[in-house]
Structures are given as structure tokens and as C-alpha cells.
């Protein structure tokens, strides 16, 4: 009886592993949260190119062992950057992001040189303005925007 149980457990584990999806982060930084909620506490921060194994989607978030990461920050498509099987296949949008190619800083510089009136310094100042996750959580909580309060 016991060997049968062990076999069944092993089969279940194998099935679960087979169902896991590899996801790759496609944005500069993205929070991994404690729960599948936009205002759940951040447990870690992922960076561009990080890969995780996900056991599935919950409310728009991929569940990983490190926490929940929103689907908009990652791709579940195969990213074959640097692997031999990429030879002969087209570079995808995801691979272009990871390689930093396409319309990139080099193209922007060339564009800026040709378009002197374009105000990139103001864009840079705008980009420096962002709110940390903890400050945003405080803002939401103070404004009564988190039902039940922040936990």
C-alpha cells in the first residue's frame, strides 16, 4: 500500500512540475507580492531578465515560490536568448527588450541630435518622479483606499 501511495505522490509531483510555466521579467523592475493583490505587501523586487517558475495565474498575477508577480511585467512565452535553439528563428519582441535593441538609447540620441527642440531634459526630470511602494501604500491607506487597511 505504501509504495502505491509513494508512486501516486510522485506522479502528482511530476504532473505539477510539468504544468509549471517559466516566466521572464520584461520590465526594469517589478514587485513580487505576498498575495495576488495590487496593494499586497512587496516581498521582493524582480529585475529585467529574471526568470521564475510559476504554478499558474491568480487574478492577473503569476504565482511563484518567491511571491506573486503581475502578468503585465512578464512573458510566459519562451525566450531563447543565447540558446542554440534560437538559431534560425526570429528574434521576438521579448528578446529584443532583453537585448536592448530596436528603438533604443542609440536611436534616441540620433533623434535628439536631429530634433533640437525636443525637451528630453524635462522627460528625464519627469522620470525621476516616482513613488515608492511603501509611500504609495501609506497614501492609499490614509485615503481609505484599502478596504480593511494595509496588511
Amino acid at each position: 500500500m505504501r509504495p502505491r501511495l509513494l508512486l501516486a505522490a510522485a506522479a502528482l509531483l511530476t504532473a505539477a512540475a510539468a504544468a509549471a510555466t517559466t516566466i521572464t521579467v520584461l520590465v526594469q523592475q517589478a514587485p513580487l507580492r505576498k498575495r495576488a493583490q495590487s496593494y499586497a505587501p512587496v516581498v521582493k523586487t524582480a529585475s529585467l531578465g529574471d526568470k521564475f517558475e510559476s504554478s499558474g495565474l491568480e487574478s492577473g498575477f503569476y504565482k511563484t515560490e518567491s511571491g506573486y508577480i503581475h502578468a503585465s511585467a512578464v512573458t510566459a512565452r519562451k525566450v531563447s536568448l543565447g540558446s542554440s535553439d534560437s538559431v534560425g528563428s526570429a528574434a521576438t519582441a521579448e528578446e529584443m527588450t532583453l537585448a536592448g535593441k530596436g528603438f533604443n538609447a542609440q536611436v534616441e540620441k540620433s533623434y535628439a541630435d536631429k530634433n533640437g527642440s525636443a525637451n528630453f531634459s524635462a522627460v528625464n526630470a519627469m522620470e525621476r518622479r516616482s513613488v515608492s511602494d511603501s509611500a504609495l501604500l501609506e497614501f492609499l491607506s490614509a485615503g481609505g483606499l484599502i478596504p480593511g487597511g494595509a496588511k
Binding site: T24, V25, Q28, Q29, K44, T45, A46, S47, L48, G49, D50, K51, F52, S66, V79, S80, L81, G82, S83, S84, S86, V87, G88, S89, A90, A91, E95, M96, L98, A99, G100, K101
Partner: peptide, 27 residues
């Protein structure tokens, strides 16, 4: 390419220091 600028945490598998020449295959 300079992909070394994409720095991040140590968690997960990283895609740094890869042979990015492979990206452009398959025109």
C-alpha cells in the same frame, strides 16, 4: 550591445552575460 546595464536582484535565473549574437538570428 550593452546589456550589462540591466542589473537586478540575484533571485531567479539571470540572462546576463549571454551570447546576444543569437538574438539576431532568423531574419
Amino acid at each position: 550591445l550593452n546589456i550589462g546595464g540591466y542589473t537586478g536582484s540575484s533571485m531567479g535565473q539571470r540572462l546576463q552575460n549571454v551570447d546576444v549574437t543569437k538574438v539576431a538570428k532568423g531574419v
